[in-house]
Structures are given as structure tokens and as C-alpha cells.
Amino acid sequence: MKKKIIYGFGAALLMVGLTGNANATAVTFFGEDLTGVGGARTNSDAAATAFLSNLSGVGTQTFESFSTGTGVPLALTFAGAGTATLTGSGSVDDSTAAGRWATSGTNYWAAETGNFTISFSAAISAFGFYATDVGDFGGELSVTYAGGGSTTLNVGNTVGSGGSTSGSVLYFGFYEDDPLKAFTSISFINPSSVDQFGFDDMTIGTFEQVVPNDPVPEPSTVLLMGLGLAGLLGYNRKRFKKNS
């Protein structure tokens, strides 16, 4: 059974339009399991673990506090990280008949063929989620987030026609380590006119809650390291001439 997992710097970045460092890209995490409803989540769980290991004290929305059938606008609470409002297409569901299913508890957000948007009460810098039954009818999922501009990330799910992709599960997460790239909304884009997706365990984090495992050195640190290395090389060169 085909499985894949990808996570790294800018793995799914398509376009950058936010203010800040133009050379910086989102750090993305992706894992997918084509195992059917309720199947093994080896790759998706690994991606979720890797993503969450870069965050501290973040909040996750499981949709368990809502009654099935609840639609938009939906007021979301991410304990420890803030609140948000979900608008667009879809409703809270607990059925597995269509290949969509909950990755925790029994409830999830069932997205219809249209798009939906989550607007946050305060700017955030990290977002991750599980998605089920993506791509069995050719739908490709992308995420657009907005701050000073907009950035679109292609999730990169497997595209098929029923079969092995029905009931599949994936995890996608990303964070920005530049405070100027904090964002205020997320839009889920589904270009298919027939594909319907399920979403669960959405996690958000503020810039202060992003704690990278392997942070990139600050430019000043790199400069000091370079000056120190240059001084050491110069000292060794002078000593070599003196000995000669």
C-alpha cells in the first residue's frame, strides 16, 4: 500500500506575498497514509509529531464540543492560543459513510465542495490539521493564509479516483519563524466540484509559541562566527610566516 511522508523547509511553498524577509519560507510538515477509514496513521502521525515538537503550549480544536449538523459561522476556541471564526461551506459531522472520519473522538469538520475560511482573533504563526478522504475524486487541497499579503501552500495530497485514496488520512502543518509573517486567516481551497473532505484536530500557535527544534542562527550570530573564523585564519597565517 502506497505511503509517503515529507517534512522540511518550504516543501510545499508555491507563492510568497507576505511582508518580511523575501528569502524566508514557511517550514512545512506533511505525511499521508492511504489505508482507508480508521486505518493506520504511521506517516500522518509522524508528521504531526514532528510539527508539534516545534511548538509549545499551543491549542487544538477537536470539534467534540459541537453538535453534529452545526454549520457556519462556527466559533472556534483553541485553548491557550486564541479564538477564531469558521465561515464558508460545511458542517460538523460524525459519520464515516462517505470516507471522511474523525482522527480523535467522533466529530470532525465535513467540508463540502466549496471553500471555507478560518479568521483568527489575533495573528498566529503556526497551523496544522488532519484531513481525511482527500483526493479520491481528483481534488487537490491548498491552503492560503493572509497577513500583510497572501501565501498559498499546496498540500500535495495523492490524487486518484476512489479506490486506495478513499478514506485516506494526511497531516499538514507549517510555521513561520518571522514575526512579520504572522497571519490572521486561513482559507482551504478545493478546486474539485465533487470532492468533499474531512478535517480534524486543528492546531494553532502564536509566534511566541513557535520554538524550532533546530533554529536558524541569527544574521548577527553568523557574522560574528565569520569574523572569528577570519581572525583565526589570519593569526595562523602570520604564525606560519614567522616560523618560516
Score class of each variant (00 low, 15 high):
50 A>N: 09
116 F>A: 04
154 N>I: 03
58 V>F: 11
46 A>P: 04
68 T>Q: 13
150 S>P: 02
204 I>G: 02
198 G>F: 07
57 G>R: 09
140 E>N: 13
196 Q>M: 11
45 D>Q: 09
66 F>E: 08
20 G>M: 02
224 L>R: 11
83 T>A: 14
173 G>M: 07
74 L>T: 03
155 V>G: 04
185 S>A: 13
185 S>D: 00
240 F>Y: 12
150 S>G: 02
206 T>I: 05
201 D>W: 07
72 V>W: 01
59 G>A: 07
199 F>S: 04
108 Y>M: 02
223 L>H: 10
232 L>E: 03
22 A>V: 13
29 F>D: 09
166 S>V: 04
141 L>F: 10
137 F>G: 12
80 G>Q: 06
165 T>K: 02
114 G>D: 11
115 N>A: 13
72 V>A: 14
76 L>P: 02
8 G>E: 03
67 S>C: 04
208 E>T: 12
110 A>F: 14
133 D>F: 03
87 T>R: 09
197 F>C: 06
224 L>P: 00
10 G>D: 15
228 G>E: 09
191 P>A: 08
174 F>K: 10
125 S>N: 13
192 S>L: 07
139 G>F: 05
155 V>K: 03
27 V>M: 13
207 F>E: 02
7 Y>C: 01
193 S>D: 14
81 A>S: 15
121 S>D: 15
66 F>D: 09
195 D>W: 04
143 V>F: 10
173 G>P: 02
1 M>V: 03
160 G>C: 08
233 L>E: 01
150 S>N: 10
119 S>Y: 00
31 G>T: 05
219 P>Y: 11
165 T>M: 05
162 G>Q: 10
211 V>D: 04
30 F>T: 00
32 E>I: 03
91 S>V: 07
179 P>S: 14
86 L>K: 10
51 F>H: 11
235 Y>H: 09
99 G>V: 05
232 L>M: 15
140 E>Q: 15
222 V>P: 00
124 I>L: 10
85 T>F: 05
172 F>T: 02
208 E>W: 00
11 A>E: 11
235 Y>D: 09
86 L>E: 09
152 T>E: 13
5 I>P: 00
204 I>F: 08
242 K>Q: 14
159 V>A: 05
217 P>V: 04
150 S>H: 06
237 R>S: 11
78 F>I: 07
211 V>H: 05
124 I>N: 08
79 A>W: 04
20 G>W: 12
41 R>Q: 12
224 L>E: 12
202 M>F: 11
214 D>F: 14
18 L>E: 15
123 A>I: 01
40 A>T: 10
71 G>R: 01
123 A>R: 06
176 E>G: 03
